[in-house]
Write a protein that binds this DNA or RNA. Structure first.
Lengths: 223, 223
DNA sequence: TGAAAAGTTGACGGCGCGTCACGCTTGGTT
DNA sequence: AACCAAGCGTGACGCGCCGTCAACTTTTCA
């Protein structure tokens, strides 16, 4: 047997040595600089060098933490996703009606977007009008959580039987596109955006099962 | 008015000299190469040099036609937009009911997307999972046409009075996001996607005016 | 036919890229 | 305290992409 990996009794608490501290600090410095630069130049126009320059670190150090600007962006997006996902999940878990489900989802999302505008600036302010959306691991997981919750709600009889995959996609599409419009207006009115989306889906969900050639739940529908 | 622009008698027919011919040919060569390369490497990973290499031309020649890969992409997107916009406009113009309006829009869009998959490949096949949407002049014009048509339909009493800007955004969001899902499935079923979207909006539009704190049409409502 | 206009070419300086040999800092051992 | 090995920061380097431009070729027109 080669390396045994014997734990020296136990090590549940953070080592928190100088080393770990600097590492966390550097990572944070880079992410913070990246946020600024992305917001400033837009994702497309930003180079790794721009991020490094906005930092007291050397170029080699950057690459100890991230492989590319894509990975930095991904980390930033993941952070956002991890912040909002539990809130969305909780809203949907405690929903007792369709209205609560839909309403909780959209209100939470738009309020988060409004409070985190810097991230969305980076997506929009780009050379010409290139819009960028990075579906990171955590973001995709968020989408799939939504789909699972929809499927569970359908199984419970809360929702009528519809194609959960398409419904998830529609919710995501409306959420992002309305968020975009919402931020573009002079007064950012999360309430107006949320109420619009909620009304749309409340009416839509009722109408959806009446599809003439309905074949909803073909794909993984486990009854 | 300063410059008078006196036409030298008339010049309605194409000059069609050798020069013009080569120019059109070169432009076409570059766009065709770019389509291939974008589809192959994804938009993000593609460099101008990659496009040039897929071409018998010299690097300097490329820059006689386009400033950057962004501009090439824009040209490709604009071509698509110009192809589909008249069809969408026609569908909506001849609509006598809300159903015809919504249905014509989505069916036309999804059928176009299915017939033009190469463009959408370029958007999706990207380093990691970066998704890119370029809102070019022509695409934005298409969005605004939709909003105008919605406003006209509301004025005519065809649609109930809703926030046309948000409704346009919601339609766009659902259209693009469902298109994405549709293409991802094994069998590309434009009908299924269209029927889902149509049912969603048919129900939604009916529900929308019942917004509790409705203030629809605040912005440019010349109703 | 001649020559100006238009367009093509590819080599070039500039710069962003990711790497790596070097040296300092840290944490553990005696 | 002294030492050492491992870990990490550093920045110069070679590579390839960027957009330009002076020289050259083709087209147009008188």
């Amino acid at each position: 047997m080669e390396t045994e990996f014997i734990q020296p009794i136990a090590r549940p608490q953070k080592p928190s040595g100088k080393r770990e501290q600097t590492k966390a600090q550097n990572r944070h410095t880079i992410l913070e600089a990246a946020r600024t630069v992305f917001a400033d130049l837009g994702y497309g126009a930003t180079t790794v060098r721009d991020i490094i320059r906005a930092t007291p670190l050397a170029s080699g150090t950057f690459y100890n933490y991230f492989k590319s600007k894509e990975e930095v962006f991904q980390a930033i997006q993941d952070e956002s996703a991890l912040r909002i996902r539990p809130r969305l999940r909780e809203e949907r878990a405690k929903a007792r009606t369709v209205e609560e489900f839909i309403s909780g989802t959209f209100r939470t999302f738009f309020e988060y977007v409004a409070s985190d505008q810097s991230n969305f600036h980076a997506i929009r302010r780009n050379t010409d009008t290139l819009r960028v959306r990075m579906d990171t691991v955590e973001i995709i997981a968020g989408f799939e959580e939504l789909r699972e919750d929809l499927e569970a709600a359908i199984a419970k009889g809360l929702f009528p039987p519809v194609d959960a995959d398409f419904l998830m996609a529609a919710i995501v599409g409306v959420a992002f596109e309305l968020a975009e419009r919402m931020l573009r207006r002079e007064i950012v009115d999360t309430n107006a955006a949320a109420e619009f989306a909620i009304a749309l889906f409340m009416g839509g969900v009722r109408a959806l099962p009446n599809l003439p050639t309905l074949r909803g739940g073909d794909e993984d529908g486990a009854g």
